[in-house]
């Protein structure tokens, strides 16, 4: 890890080719904390290029001014200069690859949080494990699988509670799966429908358990009042307060 560029962004040197764009990486910080990032772009710097010879000091990334001087100042023989340049490039032409990554979240225990401060430079960066990615993208109590996270085997989920409460905008290029996504959501909306307390009471009677909700016993009165109190004909509030199972 080179440096946290901004709170939500960092750069690291690629030592092998396991980190293509869109792959996920993890950085362990102490025993409890894991920073999870996604590679946005990869830059390659050719170390064979010379630093600006007209500046006084080296920039630390490109080759030294001394080598530049050796090749271009010490000897005036043209063929030697060409040979020296070829020899120089044989030795130095190795691109340094630096990946720029977006910080997705910081995992503390099993839960994803928003990062609050940049982390230390110099920490090793590894390919994120499936477990880490799953934890990082855990969405609410009702995760709805809508596909697969690009470049991984991990399911992409959205929080169904959020789907019901908020507006959603689906964007993407042609063929990226907008229609498929929309069908997915609609199917779930059709399966779940608002139900009232009265309808649940009717269902209980039809199922042959009328004694639970009919008559004047204290128990029946109590159950009936609880069902009417907690179950309202709105999917939003039903899910928000208690699940039907909990109420029953």
């Amino acid at each position: 890890m080179l440096n946290p560029v901004r709170l939500r962004e960092f750069e690291f040197i690629l030592l092998d080719e396991k980190f293509p764009v869109f792959s996920y990486v993890e950085i362990k910080h102490g025993n409890e904390t894991i920073y999870v990032g996604r590679v946005n772009s990869i830059y390659a710097y050719d170390l064979g290029f010379f630093s600006n010879p007209f500046r006084n000091k080296d920039d630390g990334v490109t080759a030294s001014v001394q080598d530049f001087k050796k090749i271009l100042s010490q000897d005036t023989e043209d063929s030697w200069r060409k040979a020296a340049l070829l020899a120089y490039f044989s030795d130095n032409r190795s691109p340094l690859q630096i990946a720029n990554a977006e910080l997705v979240c910081v995992l503390q225990g099993n839960f994803p949080n928003v990062p609050e401060c940049p982390f230390d430079a110099g920490l090793p960066v590894y390919k994120a494990s499936k477990e880490t990615i799953e934890k990082a993208f855990k969405k609410g109590n009702m995760p709805l699988v809508v596909g697969r996270l690009k470049g991984t085997d991990v399911s992409a989920t959205i929080d169904f509670e959020e789907v019901l409460k908020r507006h959603i905008m689906v964007t993407g290029v042609t063929g990226s799966g907008k229609s498929y996504f929309e069908v997915h959501i609609k199917v779930f909306e059709d399966v779940l429908f608002p139900i009232s307390g009265e309808e649940v009471i009717k269902l209980i009677i039809e199922s042959g358990f009328a004694m639970l909700v009919q008559g004047s016993s204290n128990e029946a009165t109590y159950i009936k009042s609880q069902l009417e109190k907690h179950i309202r004909p709105s999917l939003d509030t039903t899910l928000k307060e208690k699940t039907l199972e909990e109420v029953l």
């Binding site: 000897d75 005036t76 023989e77 030697w80 200069r81 040979a83 020296a84 020899a87 044989s90 030795d91």
Partner: peptide, 15 residues
């Protein structure tokens, strides 16, 4: 010609 040093051993006079 595998590194710059090779061309310092075989200098411009040789060429």
């Amino acid at each position: 010609a595998s590194e710059l040093r090779d061309m310092q051993i075989t200098d411009g006079r040789v060429f």
